[in-house]
Nucleic acid binder design. Structure first.
Lengths: 246, 246
DNA sequence: GGTCCGGTTTGATCTGGGTCAAGGCTCAGG
DNA sequence: CCTGAGCCTTGACCCAGATCAAACCGGACC
């Protein structure tokens, strides 16, 4: 598996970065991480891990989008997290995977065999510390999402999701967080429905409604323009500018 | 604040225990933790922390039940976690609280001022490691709950909640996990509704329905007997015996 | 060009759970 | 014993979103 051209200049720091460059990066650690890393690519739609599988690696998303989903026996599914570039996958100290992980778009992952990574973690408390912080971020995000799932209307759910994607895009395209915002939806209507606990028809209808009401503009089915983020946030019923991720 | 009589013989190890006694407890660490701990009690219904407040302590629940909730401006609320005895509160390395924490029943907490606790954590990687594991457990639990909130019917939601409470009770009353199970509901109908993303009327109706169908028996409003846990689990639509907590 | 196909939109209808409203228990206090 | 306050239950009705069904769109492939 030869390393693809990367948008990051160095991938070695991915697992201890997470939505922002770590301020305390340490050359020795990166050296060690570089030594044990390798790359994997997945096509859109391809599974990465099945729930219950033994996971012998951890890693982070370099490019593309992956999703975490849970499925009931009768087929109902709920997406429980979105993995965007720089997000971490896998859990040191755990044997099996807890959810299905799948590539939503084409995905490049930077992986580390679990054993050496755990050993490195033992030696370098800084990495363990970063991992704790990242996990706390994910926990906050998951709990934020519980409010969305449990108490928001369909329209608010859609607006919340759009706000999250726009927001996340803004951090990747620095200078963001202005009122106007343009981005591509990385998810199908069905995937959005799975994320939001809705049906795809309801997702479609609510997107049409937001368009009709001038909250968003659509070019094709995926390219979104938000003329005024504040209005979108209002629709989301969400003063907190909380960023969900996964 | 004098220390109350505790069900645990030592409280010092609470923050690094979590639903099970830690196998690697270390006398020195416990000593250090003992030195900086103190107790606080809260009456049922009393707030413990408001979302956004500066939190200058971390701690764990010694007895009673506390809840984490999020509230929207218009008053809709969603409970995002239940804190049962031995569960950890607060996040080292974070300034403000992310949710409202309130005592659901009378609660005794074992607290540590944050600064000394963090310093102790720096020195003893074992504690940091335990904390990471606990956080991962909570993350799994939160994601499990996302499936409940997003995809389950009202009846399944109630059954899921009862299963969780029964299950948790069983771990406290060793020898559990038999088919028959008896416990007291520590939550009002309203709190259950907030947890499940339902209204209290729906909660009441579904509990009545489960009673009518012989899945549960009720004595008064709080005392529950589950004659056959397997049937309850079926109603929860949940093969996974996953335990939620908080 | 045509046609196939997956993703999407839109319409018509149904229904689970929300909303509103009226009592019912149970315990504390007088 | 009565009264009031909290919870809880139950009924009647309604509506947001699910379900079922049909058609639409845009790109890939012949």
């Amino acid at each position: 598996m030869n390393a693809p051209v990367l948008s990051h200049s160095r991938c070695g720091d991915c697992p201890i970065r997470h939505r922002a460059v770590c301020a305390r990066c340490n050359a020795d650690e990166l050296e060690e991480l570089d030594a044990i890393k390798y790359y994997r690519t997945y096509e859109a739609g391809q599974p990465i891990i099945w729930s219950g599988d033994v996971m012998n690696f951890v890693g982070s998303v370099v490019s593309g989008i992956a999703s975490l989903t849970q499925t009931m026996e009768d087929g109902r599914t709920q997406m429980v997290g979105l993995l965007l570039p720089s997000d971490f996958v896998g859990r040191p100290g755990r044997e099996g995977a807890a959810y299905d992980v799948a590539a939503t778009t084409d995905v490049v992952m930077c992986c580390f065999r679990k054993k050496p990574f755990e050993e490195l973690m033992e030696r370098t408390p800084h990495i363990a510390h970063r991992l704790l912080e990242m996990t706390l971020d994910e926990l906050d995000a998951a709990r934020e999402w519980m409010l969305v799932l449990g108490r928001k209307t369909a329209r608010e759910k859609i607006a919340s999701l759009l706000a999250i994607i726009a927001r996340r895009d803004a951090t990747l395209t620095p200078g963001g967080a202005t009122n106007r915002m343009v981005f591509d939806l990385p998810l199908t209507r069905e995937a959005m429905a799975d994320y939001l606990g809705l049906t795809l028809e309801t997702v479609s209808r609510q997107i049409s409604a937001l368009k009709r009401d001038g909250i968003i503009e659509l070019e094709g089915k995926r390219h979104v323009t938000v003329p005024d983020m504040r209005r979108l946030m209002e629709e989301a019923g969400d003063d907190s500018d909380g960023g969900f991720l996964g």
